[in-house]
Design a protein around this nucleic acid. Sequence first.
DNA 1: CCTACCGATCGGTAGG
DNA 2: CCTACCGATCGGTAGG
Lengths: 224, 224
Amino acid sequence: MPVHTLSPAATPSRPRGRPRKTVATLDDGNRRRQLVTGAARLFRHQGFDATSTRDIAAAVGMQSGSPFYHFKSKGALLFAVMQEGMGGAIERQAKAIAAYQSLQKGELPEQYSYGLLAVLIKNHFDILLGPGSDFIPVMLYEWRSINERQRAAIAQLQAEYEAVWIPVLQALFDAGLLKADVKLARLLIFGALNWSAQWFDRRKEASIDDLTAAAMALFIQERP
Amino acid sequence: MPVHTLSPAATPSRPRGRPRKTVATLDDGNRRRQLVTGAARLFRHQGFDATSTRDIAAAVGMQSGSPFYHFKSKGALLFAVMQEGMGGAIERQAKAIAAYQSLQKGELPEQYSYGLLAVLIKNHFDILLGPGSDFIPVMLYEWRSINERQRAAIAQLQAEYEAVWIPVLQALFDAGLLKADVKLARLLIFGALNWSAQWFDRRKEASIDDLTAAAMALFIQERP
DNA sequence: CCTACCGATCGGTAGG
DNA sequence: CCTACCGATCGGTAGG
């Protein structure tokens, strides 16, 4: 029962019969999606507070009051950005893991865990720094601007996302490849990765693969 | 020639002769300091945009227009917070290094570098998470809200602060204790440390010493 | 989804 | 540093 549905949410009450003069309603999903994507971009680059709903409207070619036809408040738009961002991240992570597992021959357990951590880290960098990567940075840096109920919902998605990492780190710890306390290691590692959103430049020297290699060498110094 | 003077700046024009009715001017330094400290607290917890100059005035017992007697704009106040925060951080780091060096007997070079990194990390956590630690988090998370000239000034202080870390990491790399690319390692390490401002809770289980130990074990797995 | 609009808040200033 | 105030902007809404 995914809390983080990506689809435009089952429209509660739609006028039955043939739609008249409501051309806009027909591509409601598209407009909504455009608003979320545009808002993510603006929130990421200017911050939530510094972005007006008029900015967002203009970004998708609407008039100033129109975003409120799709979202009941500016905060609801922010929440949608975070929710859809985390939903997508969880999906991408699951696919990356599945792809890795399907490639595995009977390797040693440490080799398996080592390879899986590399996959998780690379995927995390992709989500954070790759094309269309505005959603997760917004989630990371606008935490203050959502209310408690929303925070709880996002926290649950984050827990789901992080749950996969814990056994991997534990296995590496048990194998002697990770020397730090597993819980603190997880927090420090996520910090190292997440902070890259502040300094990484797609046009600069280091690639996402370089980053992944550096992170692996930094956290796990002995290759199994 | 420290750009980041902590003192109230040599007041340019002060009425000569005995001050009359200008009681407030007498403790100008105090009021200014109170504004900076109060603003840091509010900026840290609510964000720059979500904090009004009225909030700041109220926090130090002033009327709404009065902060502008001390600072020409809200942005100037933010800049002061960052500037003084970095100035203090550089000073504290220098003292921590000096204290460490005065304790050193003729150790092996790797041992020296290892111990120095631990000192730098511990000091960084203190600055970030210890008492009165609002300035640096504000600097880290409100980067967007200062203008380019200000950004350049802060970047220079940051470079000064980070300059000390580079030879230490290089020495550990040369000794085979750090396996990752030195430049990327530095960025990832600062990320791991800085991110702790988001999750560290002073009342919770882990202490700053625990954090330091975990970070050292994570980044440098072999003890010299 | 647009038009027209409102109430509130905000950064900042003049003048003392 | 206070009083009184201004212009601008903003989130949001009614009514179509």
